[in-house]
Nucleic acid binder design. Structure first.
Lengths: 336, 336
DNA sequence: TTGTACGCGTTATCAA
DNA sequence: TTGATAACGCGTACAA
C-alpha cells in the first residue's frame, strides 16, 4: 500500500511529472486532451498529492490557518464550520489553532505555528482580531490575513464585520418601542472587540430619542453565562430594578434568565431579556431569546474566501460589512 | 525575513546539520555541551523546524488528526480542547477535520485527508468511532488510531470509554429513588454509539428492582434540542404522562424543558428532567440540569495520549474506562 | 559522538 | 505546449 506519487501518475498518463504538476495546479498551458489523460490517471490511481511535498517545493502550502481564543463553544463551532466549508470549496486545507497565553507568549505561539506549518494565510477571529500587537506582528510578517469582527479599522488588513453599533441600537430601539425605559445593559468582555461598539449602540438609541441612557444600569460581564448571571443579580436586586436587560451576548443573556428565575421573576412578564449573536443556545433556553442574529458562519466563510483571494494576489475590500437581523423571540414583551 | 533553516542553526552552533537534527528529535547520543550549544543557537535564531520538511524526509509528520461528525458544538469544543492540550504537551500539531457525507464519500474524505496531510495517527470521535466501515478501513490502512466512546469493542484498536450502561442505570436509579415510577426515556441518535448502551442502562435499573421499564414511554431522539422537544411533546401530551423524563443527552434534555414550559408544566415540580454529558449547556439552562458528567475533555486528552504512545510503538490497553459522575442539579425532584 | 550523502514528493527554472 | 533538472528543509543510512 505504498503511497502513490506524481511519478506514478506521470507514468500512467505517459507524460512528465511537470505536466502532472501543471494539471494539479490548474495551470492554463496544458492541452485539453493531455489534461484529460492526466486526470484519468489520477482518478485511476486515486492519487492524493502530498501536502508536505507541495509546501516544501512551492511557495504555497495550500494550507490556511484559523486562530481563535474564545471561550464560547457555539461561536467557535460556527466559525470553524464556515471556514472549513470555504476551504473545501477552494480545495484547501484548514489548520485550526486555539491560542492561549498572554502578550509575547501568545505572539510566539502564533508565530511558531505559522513558521512550522507554512500556512499561506490566517483567518483571525475575535478577540485576537482586536489584539493590536498581534495584528502589527502579522502585518510585519507580510503574511496575508483577514480579520473577523474587529472594531478598530486602523490597520490595512481586510476585515469582515457587521455593524455592531447599529445592531445594538436596533435592539435597544426595539426594547424602547415595547415601552421599556429602565433598560439595563451588560457589557461584553473588555478585550472582545465588539463590546465597545455594542455599548455605543445602546447609548445611541436613547440619544436618538433625545433621552439619556441610564448609565447606572450598566454592569460589566465577561461573555460567560456565569458573568451574565452575576451582573444580572446586581441589577435585579436594586429597588429600582430595570424592566429589561440587554446582554451583549447570548451566553450572558441566558445567565440573566437564570438570575431572574432565582429571584422569582418571570421572563418576559417581569423582565425582558435580549441577547446578541443568535447561537444555538438562543433557541434552546426557555424562553427562547430575542437576539441579534450575527451571521457567524457566513462571516467566517466570507473571510476565508477573501483570504484565498488575497493569497492569489487579488485585491479585496478593506472592510466587508454583512447584514445582521433582529430575531424576536419569547424573552421580550412590554413591561407590566 | 527569510526562513531560518537547520543549516543556520548548524552554522551558528558550529556543528553539522545532523547534530541539530539529533537535538531536535531528542536522540540520546549527543554530548550535553553540544546539545546546549545547539539549543542556544536555536533559541537565538528563534528557529522553528519546518513540519512539511520533516514529514517529507522522515517517516513521521508530527501531526495528529482528529476527525468528527457531530452536531453538538459543546461536545466538539471539549473534544478539540482535550486533544489540542495533549498535543501541545507532546510537541505535536493537531489537524482537525470535520467530516460530512455518507458511506463511501465519507471514507474517501477521511482517506484523502490522511494521505494528503501525512498524519501519524487519528483520534476518532463518535459517531465515527462506531462506523464499522471506517474502522475496518483504518485497520486495513495500518494507521494508528484511538477511538473515543464506541460501544462495540469488537475491533483491535484501542478505545477510551465510560461505562454508559452503568451511568444510565445510575441516573435511572436516582430517579427511582426519588419516587418516580413513570420515567420516560428519549433515545439518542441511532448512529451514535452510546445511545444503545444508555437505553440498556435505563432498562437495567428497573430490572435490578424486579420491575420492568415502561417501554411505551420511550421516544426516539436525534441528539438535538429540537428532537428532544418533539419527543417530549409526544410523551407529555399523553393522559398518563411520565413524571420524569431521562434524555440521552443535554441538548435533548434542554428540549424537554422547553416542551414542558410550552405545555405549562413546571420543572421540576410537575416534571423531572435528566440529561447526559454535562456540557456547558447543563449549567446555562433553567433549571440547571441533573445530568451525567461525561469527562469529554479528559477522554479526548487521554485518547490523544494513547495515540501518541501507539505511534511511538508502545503497547496501550485496548479499552480505557474513565469514571463518570452524577451531577445533581435543579431539574429533578420527587414527584408531586 | 559526530558528519556526509542521499532521498522524500513536489514546484520552479529554464530549455526544447 | 511540454520536459529535464535543480531546489525546498529535513531525516536516514552509513561512515568516520
Amino acid at each position: 500500500m505504498a503511497r502513490k506519487t506524481i511519478d506514478d501518475v506521470a507514468a500512467l498518463a505517459g507524460v512528465s511529472i511537470k505536466t502532472v504538476s501543471r494539471v494539479l495546479n490548474d495551470e492554463p498551458s496544458v492541452r485539453p486532451d493531455t489534461r484529460g489523460r492526466v486526470e484519468d490517471a489520477m482518478a485511476a490511481l486515486n492519487y492524493q498529492p502530498s501536502l508536505p511535498a507541495r509546501s516544501l517545493a512551492g511557495r504555497r502550502s495550500n494550507l490556511i490557518g484559523l486562530v481563535y481564543e474564545n471561550p464560547s463553544a457555539n461561536y467557535v463551532f460556527d466559525v470553524q464550520s464556515g471556514a472549513m466549508a470555504r476551504c473545501r470549496e477552494g480545495k484547501l486545507r484548514l489548520f485550526i489553532q486555539s491560542c492561549n497565553g498572554l502578550g509575547d507568549q501568545l505572539l510566539g505561539e502564533v508565530l511558531a505555528m505559522i513558521e512550522q506549518t507554512h500556512v499561506d494565510g490566517l483567518v483571525v477571529t475575535p478577540p485576537l482580531s482586536a489584539n493590536r500587537a498581534l495584528i502589527a506582528l502579522l502585518e510585519r510578517q507580510g503574511l496575508p490575513f483577514v480579520r473577523i469582527g474587529p472594531d478598530e479599522e486602523d490597520f490595512d488588513s481586510p476585515a469582515v464585520v457587521i455593524d455592531d453599533e447599529a445592531a445594538a441600537a436596533a435592539m435597544t430601539d426595539y426594547l424602547l418601542d415595547l415601552g421599556h425605559e429602565r433598560i439595563g445593559f451588560i457589557t461584553g468582555h473588555p478585550e472582545h472587540c465588539a463590546s465597545h461598539l455594542r455599548k455605543l449602540g445602546y447609548r445611541q438609541a436613547f440619544r436618538k430619542r433625545g433621552r439619556k441612557a441610564p448609565e447606572d444600569l450598566t454592569e460589566q460581564g465577561y461573555n460567560t453565562a456565569a458573568s451574565g448571571r452575576e451582573a444580572a443579580l446586581l441589577l435585579l436586586r436594586r429597588a429600582d430594578r430595570p424592566t429589561a436587560i440587554f446582554a451583549s451576548n447570548d451566553d450572558m443573556a441566558a445567565g440573566v434568565v437564570l438570575a431572574a428565575h432565582e429571584l422569582g421573576l418571570e421572563v418576559p412578564r417581569d423582565l425582558s431579556v435580549a441577547g446578541y449573536d443568535d447561537t444555538q443556545l438562543a433557541r434552546i433556553v426557555w424562553p427562547t431569546l430575542t437576539t441579534i442574529h450575527q451571521p457567524t458562519y457566513n462571516m467566517s466563510h466570507c473571510a476565508t474566501g477573501l483570504l484565498i483571494d488575497l493569497i492569489r494576489g487579488n485585491d479585496v475590500p478593506r472592510v466587508t460589512r454583512l447584514d445582521f437581523t433582529m430575531q424576536k423571540r419569547g424573552s421580550t414583551a412590554p413591561p407590566l
